[in-house]
């Protein structure tokens, strides 16, 4: 089963993402900030990481940079959940090594469609 790590500091967004993914049959682990996500990621391997950008403790950009340092996550698809629709901010995650992004607000169908893009 495809294993996904979902990272967002907002509980409602996290619940929505987790519920959506679980309903679609994915195995989901959640984390509420980058540092927690990193700790979890080090212990388990994931097929995909979905992360918010703005978070306390460690933000999504930093998380991507850290993950890409880890051998097991060198090529793992990492998608940023971002509200930026244009410009540098949208590319910040990409430049840090993210695979792509999902623009907020999104609905469950859009999220699943994007996930399917990367997980096949």
């Amino acid at each position: 089963m495809t294993k996904i790590l979902a990272v967002d500091d907002s509980a409602s967004m996290r619940q929505m993402v987790v519920f959506t993914l679980q309903s679609a049959g994915y195995d989901v682990v959640e984390a509420s900030d980058g540092q927690k996500a990193l700790d979890i990621a080090k212990g388990t391997s994931f097929d995909l990481v979905l992360s918010d950008v703005n978070m306390p403790v460690m933000d999504g950009i930093e998380l991507v940079k850290e993950l890409r340092q880890i051998e097991a996550y060198k090529y793992t698809p990492i998608l940023m959940l971002t509200t930026e629709t244009a410009g540098d901010k949208k590319m910040a995650g990409k430049n840090a090594g993210a695979t792509g992004w999902v623009v907020k607000p999104f609905n469950p169908d859009k999220l699943l469609a994007t996930i399917k893009k990367v997980t096949g």
Binding site: D9, S10, S12, M13, D52, P56, L81, T83, K104, N107
Partner: peptide, 16 residues
């Protein structure tokens, strides 16, 4: 912190 609070509310309210 202030920014993040506004940002989260924006993200959530848009989604919902």
């Amino acid at each position: 912190t202030i920014f993040r609070a506004a940002h989260s509310i924006k993200g959530g309210s848009g989604t919902f």
